[in-house]
Simulated assay, not measured.
Amino acid sequence: MLFFTLQGAEDLGQRVAAMGGWGVAPHEERDFDMGEHKGRPLVDPRGHDVFVLAALHGGGAASVNDRLIRAMFFCAACRDLGAARVSLIAPYLPYGRKDRRTKDHDPLSARYVAQAVEAMGCDQIVTVAAHNLAGFENAFRIPTLHLATEALFAALIAADDKAAPCVVLAPDPGGIKRAQLLHEALQAIGVADVGFAFMDKRRSAGIVSGSLFAGDVAGARVHVLDDMICGGGTILRAAQAARAHGAVTVHALASHGLFTPQAITRLSQDDGLDALTVTDSAAPFVQDTPKLRVVGLAPMIAAAIARLHGGTTWPLPPASAPQPRSLPFAPGQ
């Protein structure tokens, strides 16, 4: 097996390799004048089961499109050089939000990404917390593996020993199923007193509307779950609504912290939000703040690679509270 970690995913890749007990294979990435790029393995991939970990979020010097095309070209090079199988691991898979037409003549960008990945010779793809699981699985014609984060978040919530009842809140209609899965994960590990609530939200031409709030959160610890946070507006809107309906505390959880430069400041300074938890799928990305905690994905990804490579069976990380980490990086670094 060969495990490659592309630029932007080095920190996570080193922790995945350490957790799995294998090394990171050497490779070269070079930038040329006028924006072109070359990536190549520095070991012969012929006959090997190749896993490529790629950070496909935007930020810093590389855009989403830059990182996507570089990852696809690297996978294609491994395929051309005779790799037995090439698996792309993209903890955050871009364009997942555009999996259907909401306006006339809209693109189906999620499907186009899938077609491009397949055309480059990838045999399978692994991602974490897809925006729309059905859309992700249906877009690809190669095998897919979806790594859900509900168990990680449920373990964190269960470790909270405060006496107030717990409520899971979906911040928009599209997140109801995701919130239901977290609700079920909490019940599965013995958190009995769990409620459920959701908010209405509609967005058109950049304008957000919808004020319906359903569910009883009075006197409760509210956990707002989303798959990603960018500007933070959706989370803060839900947090403020929960406070207005009597929530004792509000904790936001998201699998992907795709923060804009202003988002962390906005979230950390808002009195309606007590805490924010994300995974390291898009790290490095944040400045240090007491409200933020980061849950590592390395155990989950290492377990997935071990299962995929030769059918080795590894159990997923146990449903115990993972240790959060602070990442003192500047936004957009």
Rank of each mutant, 00 (worst) to 15 (best):
A83D: 05
R85L: 06
I89E: 01
A90W: 04
A90E: 03
P91W: 02
Y92A: 03
R97M: 02
R97T: 01
K98E: 01
K103S: 13
D104I: 11
D104M: 14
D106N: 08
L108K: 02
S109I: 10
R111D: 10
R111Q: 14
A114P: 14
A114C: 05
A116Y: 11
E118C: 08
E118G: 12
A119L: 12
A119H: 10
Q124L: 15
Q124C: 15
Q124E: 15
V126H: 05
T127N: 12
V128P: 07
A130D: 11
A130N: 11
L133G: 11
A134R: 11
F136D: 06
E137F: 09
I142L: 12
P143M: 00
T144I: 10
L145W: 06
A154T: 00
A155V: 04
A155S: 15
L156W: 08
L156P: 03
I157E: 05
D160H: 01
D161K: 09
K162Y: 02
K162D: 14
P165G: 05
A170S: 12
A170E: 04
P171E: 07
D172W: 11
K177I: 08
K177R: 13
R178Q: 00
Q180R: 15
Q180F: 05
Q180N: 14
E184H: 15
Q187M: 06
Q187D: 02
A188L: 01
G190R: 13
A192C: 06
V194E: 03
A197Q: 10
A197K: 10
F198I: 09
M199E: 02
D200L: 10
K201V: 09
A205D: 15
G206V: 07
S211H: 00
L212I: 15
L212G: 12
A214S: 13
A214G: 04
G215R: 07
G215D: 07
D216I: 03
D216Y: 00
G219V: 00
G219M: 09
A220Q: 07
A220Y: 08
V222E: 11
L225Y: 02
L225H: 02
L225E: 00
